[in-house]
Design a protein around this nucleic acid. Sequence first.
DNA 1: ATTTGTGCAAATCGTTTGCATCTGA
DNA 2: TCAGATGCAAACGATTTGCACAAAT
Lengths: 143, 143
Amino acid sequence: MTTRMLTDTAGKDVTDMLRTAGLRPTRQRVSLAEILYSKGDRHVSAELLHEEAVDADVPVSLATVYNTLHQFTEAGLLREVAIEGNKTYFDTNVSDHHHFFIEGENRVIDIPGEGVGIGKLPRAPEGMEVVRVDVVVRVREKQ
Amino acid sequence: MTTRMLTDTAGKDVTDMLRTAGLRPTRQRVSLAEILYSKGDRHVSAELLHEEAVDADVPVSLATVYNTLHQFTEAGLLREVAIEGNKTYFDTNVSDHHHFFIEGENRVIDIPGEGVGIGKLPRAPEGMEVVRVDVVVRVREKQ
DNA sequence: ATTTGTGCAAATCGTTTGCATCTGA
DNA sequence: TCAGATGCAAACGATTTGCACAAAT
C-alpha cells in the first residue's frame, strides 16, 4: 500500500531528524513533525497545529504543542516569524528568506528565492553584531 | 523659570497636536503625549508608558493608556512596531525608517536616516499591493 | 531504572470590554 | 448640556507552569 509506505518513510525521516536534533522521537513529536513537514513550507500557530493534530487522530494536548514548537525552534527545525499581532507563528522554512504579510487576513507567505535584495545595511551599534535581517513586505488586497 | 516655561510650551504644542489630530486634549491625553514626545524618538509599551505616567504623578489607568495609544496610532501620531514577542511596542517616530532589535534586551532602536537600502523587491502577489516594507536588523551583544 | 516527555488544569500575562461616573467644549 | 473620556473590575485569548502519570532509552 502506497499510503503505508509513505507513512513509514515519513516516520523514519522524521525520527532521524529528531534524533539528529537531539530530541527523543516520542509519538507526539513524530506526529507533529510529520504534520509540519509533509506539506512543504508552512506557517503555523500553536492553535492551528493542535487542530490539525486532533483532526489527524493524533491526540496531543495544546501544552505539548507549545512545548514541541519551542523545542523544535531551539533545535533549529523551525523559525519564529516576527509579525505584529498577538499570536506567534512558526515557519517550517528555516533557510534565509523573507516574508509577505497580508494585512487583514493575518497571513504570512514566503517570498520566494532571492526576491529581496538588501542594498545598504547600517553598521550595528557599538559592541553589537548582526544576527539576522528580517524583511516583511506588508501587502493588502488591491483596492 | 526655565522649567515652567518648557512645561507650558510643551503643553501648548501637545494640545495643538491633539486638536489637529481631531482628539480632544484631555488631561490624560495631554500628559501622555508630553511623556511620549518630550524625549525624542521612543519605543514604548503600554506598561512602560503607564509606569512613567504614574511616576510623573499623572494618575491614569492602564485601560486609558491602551485606548490612548491606539487612538494616537489611528491619528498617525504613533506607529506600531512589529517585533516578535507578546508585547506591542509603539514608536513615536512615524517617518519612514527601520529598526534594530536587540536580542536578549528586547529593545528597539531606530536605524538612523537612510541607513537601510532595499535593492530588490519582489512583486506583490496577484491582486495585492505593497503597503510598507519593514526591515528589522536583529543584533546581539558581540561575543 | 532512570530520565525525559506528556496531559491536565490552574495560573499568568498582555490586552480588551462593559458600564457607571466624570469632564471638556 | 452632553457627546465623548475615563476608571475600574471583570472578561479574554494566548501562552506557561506545576505536578502526577506515562513512555523512551
